[in-house]
Simulated scan of single mutants.
Amino acid sequence: MSKITIYHNPRCGTSRNTLALIRNTGIEPEVIEYLKNTPSKQALADIVAKSTHTVRDIIRAKEAIYQELDLANPKWTDDELLDFMVKHPILINRPIVVVDNETARLCRPCEEVLDILPLPQLKAFNKENGEAVIDENGKRIV
């Protein structure tokens, strides 16, 4: 069986919906609440390397500290941005899902996770807001 890890913020609806979609396959993922258990700089670099994302893609620009630190400024290197994410984990965009320690994806919107899950959806699924994502046959609604 595949190993799935989700870097999760339980206060985030997108993260909660992504976690629920993973569980809807019958898999119980490893859940890392990254605000409590911040990944190391190397772990974040590994996530980027296993994904199609850049370091800037996985930094959360909506946080006040992003503006305070002027992180939009291109002067910051990827290495420096990773340091900021370790020091201020609220800057880590979420949720990030890693499958079999090989593939990583920022799952915004939550439906992004469907492209990397190794098992099909078992039943219908609606997001917290009621939007249908998976039909009664376990198929994605487009």
Rank of each mutant, 00 (worst) to 15 (best):
R108N: 14
W76I: 06
I90H: 01
E128M: 14
H88A: 11
A61T: 15
T14I: 09
W76T: 08
G138Q: 07
E80S: 10
E30G: 00
L122E: 06
L35N: 06
R56Y: 03
P120F: 04
E63M: 10
V31W: 13
T77Q: 04
K87L: 13
H53P: 00
C107K: 00
E102T: 15
D100I: 05
V97F: 03
G130F: 13
L82T: 10
V97P: 04
E111P: 06
A124Q: 14
A132V: 13
V86P: 02
T54I: 03
V31G: 12
N73D: 15
N73W: 11
C107R: 02
A64R: 15
I90W: 00
I4H: 02
E136Q: 08
I6D: 08
N137D: 10
N73L: 11
S51W: 01
T52W: 00
I4Y: 01
E111M: 11
N137L: 05
L69P: 05
V142T: 14
I90A: 07
Y7E: 02
I134T: 09
N24Q: 06
H88P: 06
D78Q: 07
L44G: 05
V98D: 07
E112F: 03
F84H: 15
T25P: 04
T52Y: 02
I92P: 07
L69C: 08
M1L: 12
L119W: 01
S2N: 09
T38E: 02
D79R: 00
T54C: 01
D83W: 02
Y7N: 03
L91A: 01
N93Y: 05
W76Q: 06
A64P: 12
F84N: 10
I59R: 08
N101D: 15
V98E: 15
E128N: 12
N101A: 09
L71V: 12
D79F: 00
I90S: 08
Q42P: 00
T52D: 15
A49T: 08
K139E: 15
E63H: 05
L117S: 13
S40D: 04
L119V: 03
E80F: 02
S40Q: 07
K127M: 12
D135Q: 06
D78P: 09
K41H: 13
V86G: 01
N73S: 14
I22A: 02
L82M: 06
V142L: 13
E136G: 00
S51R: 03
E30R: 12
T77M: 02
K87Y: 03
R11F: 02
C107H: 04
K87H: 10
N129S: 14
R105Q: 06
G13A: 14
E136R: 00
C107I: 04
D115F: 10
N73C: 14
A43G: 06
N93L: 04
I141D: 01
S2F: 04
E102W: 01
D57A: 10
Q67T: 14
L21M: 15
A124Y: 02
N37W: 00
A124D: 14
Y7W: 07
L117H: 12
R140V: 15
N129M: 06
P74I: 11
V31I: 15
D83Q: 09
N9C: 12
V99Y: 02
N101S: 10
Q121E: 07
T54G: 10
